[in-house]
Write a protein that binds this DNA or RNA. Sequence first.
DNA 1: GTCTATAAAGGGATAGAC
DNA 2: GTCTATCCCTTTATAGAC
Lengths: 183, 183
Amino acid sequence: MNLSRAERRSRSERRILEAARGLFAERGFERTTIRAVAAEAGVDPALVMQHFGSKQELFSRAVQDAPVPEGAEPGDLIERMLETLGVKLSGLPPASLAMMRSMLTHPEAADSARAALGRQIDQVGAVLSGDDARLRAALVTSIMIGVTIGHQLLDLDPLRDASQEEIDRLMRPCLLALLHDQA
Amino acid sequence: MNLSRAERRSRSERRILEAARGLFAERGFERTTIRAVAAEAGVDPALVMQHFGSKQELFSRAVQDAPVPEGAEPGDLIERMLETLGVKLSGLPPASLAMMRSMLTHPEAADSARAALGRQIDQVGAVLSGDDARLRAALVTSIMIGVTIGHQLLDLDPLRDASQEEIDRLMRPCLLALLHDQA
DNA sequence: GTCTATAAAGGGATAGAC
DNA sequence: GTCTATCCCTTTATAGAC
């Protein structure tokens, strides 16, 4: 039984996007080639272009679902933060990894990241009180990025070997010190 | 009065290295071209190759002085840490920026960074007590990376606008919570 | 819808003149 | 020591056949 054009098309697209996410996450934008994506997806390089028009567009589409991970709504902010960190340290979605991997070298990725992080900072900042609310929010956000990079992208030994509970336990007072109201 | 060959050579080398550091710091390894380095240094592209043999070698030489910033010797660890952070947030040397900028996408840079960070983690860990000394050291190190990236490479608004004293004041209890002895 | 062929550009590296 | 000229490979992107 044959598939319709549309079915085949969207099936190819999905496979290409998946392959792209994986490679962008692994190698970053510059070192990922259309050819490699096509090979990984088991299709022809020209097909990738046919579907997405350009490498940049492919990147945008592959990454758009999950910019840099957000998800800090009011509530038990710290617990939410740790929860998010937990997600980050276990199974951060490939799209987010791709974003982070590329944000220091690819200008467009940097812009997206800045925008996404800005939103997150605003969200967290809105929950905090004090003149320095946004600054504290920015520091917390940066800290989360640092731990995520150390763990997921640089693969630092002690972080890789640690259980999530341990990291939780150690990071909680640290985040608390930064988020807790103070002059 | 003419300069000797050796003098001219080392003068060129210095200018090339300076230009390379700047561009690697700004754009990362992949997006920095030999041609651009040469233009920035006001020399011929071929001369760059003549001096350094390959782009990779140029990168290594440009970055070797200051891998990822270390400098955490025993003593008042936290104050040292903050001091280092202060340096990072004001005038981190271009070589270190180049290193950080490239460490997520350039495999060789990643290796160097891992090694340098590993040394730093060991140093900090040696000062701490408890089974989780190394893990705490790794977290502190990652935090410093995160704040530095947010400030220097991503240029997050609240961090750019903040004074060093403010950041100091906010980060101190945060680092203290992580470094202070506990079960 | 997918592939072949190829255009077009960019960039690392080399040989040799000056 | 430095520059000119150039090779050659890689990669994105396009045109058109099947």
